[in-house]
Design a protein around this nucleic acid. Structure first.
Length: 305
DNA sequence: AAACCTGTCAACCGCAAACCC
DNA sequence: AGGGTTTGCGGTTGACAGGTT
C-alpha cells in the first residue's frame, strides 16, 4: 500500500508560474490567508496547481518580506559559519537571514559560496604557523559547562594577545563593544606565553558562553563567564576551537533566550546589545584562520555603563 | 553563426515529522 | 494508540541565459 499522492498529477499544471497565476495566488493568500491547508488552497484560489507547488511559490517568491537580489558579505559570513556548525540545515540557516529562503541559501551555497570557500581554503592553507594547543580546555571537555579542570590555564599565544588585552581595557565604543581585529599572521609569528586568569577561581559563575565550534565536526564547547565582575577587573578569558577560515564568525550562547548569539568580527557589538538585556557586555576578538584547523581568540567581559 | 559548455535558480520529488481524527 | 493527511525539508532536476569555442 503506497502513500496517497498529494494531488492528481495528471490534472495539475507544472513548470514555471505565469504572472497571472502569481497574481491569483498572491491575492488569495493576502485576502484569506492559507487557512492552514495548502492542499485545498489551489482549488479555492482557482489555480490548477498542486498545493505543494503553491506553498513553495508563496514561500520562496511571492511572500512580501522576501529579499531579492544578491547576498551581502555579511550574509556570506553568516551562511559559512552556520554551515560549518549545522551542516546543510538550510531552513535553520535561512532563519538567520531575514528575507532569505532556504532554497535561496541552498542555491547560493551550492553555486557560489562552496567554491568561494574552497578557493579561500586553498589560498590560506599552509601559510600560517600555529602552535597546537595541548591545554585546550574546550576541545577536551566539550560537555563541561565551565572551563578547564586542568591546573594550568595558560596558552601559547603570541605577544599580540597582550596587545589585544590592552585594546580591550580601553573604554568600549558607542555601541558597547571593542574595536579590535586580530591579525592572524602577526599573532602566530612568535609565541611568547600569555597567562590568563583561571575562570573557575572567580567567586560565582552565573552565566556560560558556549562557543559553537568553529569546526567541521560540529564540535561544541563551553567557557565560563562571570558577569558580576566590575569593569576594572578586566577579566579576560581565552578560548580556542577547531577549524576556521577567513569567513568564519563565532557563535556564542550567553543564555539570554535565543539559541545563540552570532558575533561577527565586525558587527558583534550591535548584535550583542540585542542579545543582552542587562548591563553586562562582552568584547570579542576576531576568529583566526590557521593552517591546521585551529581557531583562537580572546574575549573580555565587563560592565557597560 | 552555430554548437557546446557552464552557471544559475525555480521548481519538483520523496521522505520524515507533525498534525489530526 | 494508530492510521491517514498535511507540512516542511533537503536533494535533485531541468530550463534558461550567457559565455566560449
Amino acid at each position: 500500500m503506497g502513500r496517497a499522492p498529494c494531488c492528481d498529477k495528471a490534472n495539475v499544471k507544472r513548470g514555471p508560474w505565469s504572472p497571472e497565476e502569481d497574481t491569483a495566488l498572491k491575492h488569495y493568500v493576502e485576502k484569506h490567508g492559507t487557512g492552514g491547508n495548502w492542499i485545498a488552497l489551489p482549488h479555492k484560489a482557482g489555480l490548477k496547481r498542486c498545493g505543494k507547488s503553491c506553498r513553495l511559490r508563496w514561500l520562496n517568491y511571492l511572500r512580501p518580506d522576501i529579499k531579492h537580489g544578491s547576498f551581502t558579505e555579511e550574509e556570506d559570513k553568516v551562511i559559512c559559519t552556520l554551515y560549518k556548525n549545522l551542516g546543510s540545515r538550510w531552513s535553520v540557516i535561512a532563519s538567520h537571514l531575514p528575507g532569505r529562503t532556504d532554497n535561496d541559501v541552498k542555491n547560493y551555497w551550492n553555486t557560489k559560496l562552496k567554491k568561494k570557500l574552497l578557493a579561500a581554503k586553498n589560498n590560506t592553507s599552509g601559510n600560517l604557523n600555529i602552535h597546537s594547543n595541548s591545554h585546550n580546555p574546550i576541545s577536551t571537555s566539550p560537555s563541561s559547562p565551565c572551563v578547564s579542570t586542568s591546573n594550568s590555564f595558560s596558552y601559547n599565544f603570541s605577544a599580540q594577545v597582550t596587545e589585544v588585552a590592552s585594546s580591550l581595557s580601553q573604554p568600549p565604543n558607542e555601541a558597547g563593544g571593542f574595536n579590535y581585529k586580530l591579525d592572524s599572521k602577526k599573532l602566530f609569528q612568535n609565541s611568547s606565553p600569555f597567562s590568563l586568569p583561571r575562570p573557575s577561581e572567580s567567586s560565582e559563575i552565573s552565566s556560560c558562553a558556549k562557543i559553537f565550534s568553529v569546526s567541521t565536526s560540529s564540535q561544541e564547547a563551553s567557557v565560563s563567564a562571570t558577569p558580576s565582575l566590575p569593569v576594572e577587573d578586566n577579566n579576560y578569558i581565552a578560548w580556542s576551537g577547531n577549524a576556521a577560515t577567513e569567513f568564519d564568525n563565532i557563535l556564542m550562547d550567553f543564555g539570554h533566550g535565543s539559541h545563540y548569539d552570532l558575533l561577527s568580527e565586525y558587527g558583534f557589538p550591535e548584535k550583542l546589545a540585542e542579545a543582552t538585556p542587562n548591563p553586562v557586555n562582552f568584547g570579542l576578538t576576531s576568529l583566526l584562520a590557521t593552517a591546521d584547523n585551529k581557531a583562537q581568540g580572546v574575549y573580555q567581559q565587563c560592565h557597560i555603563r
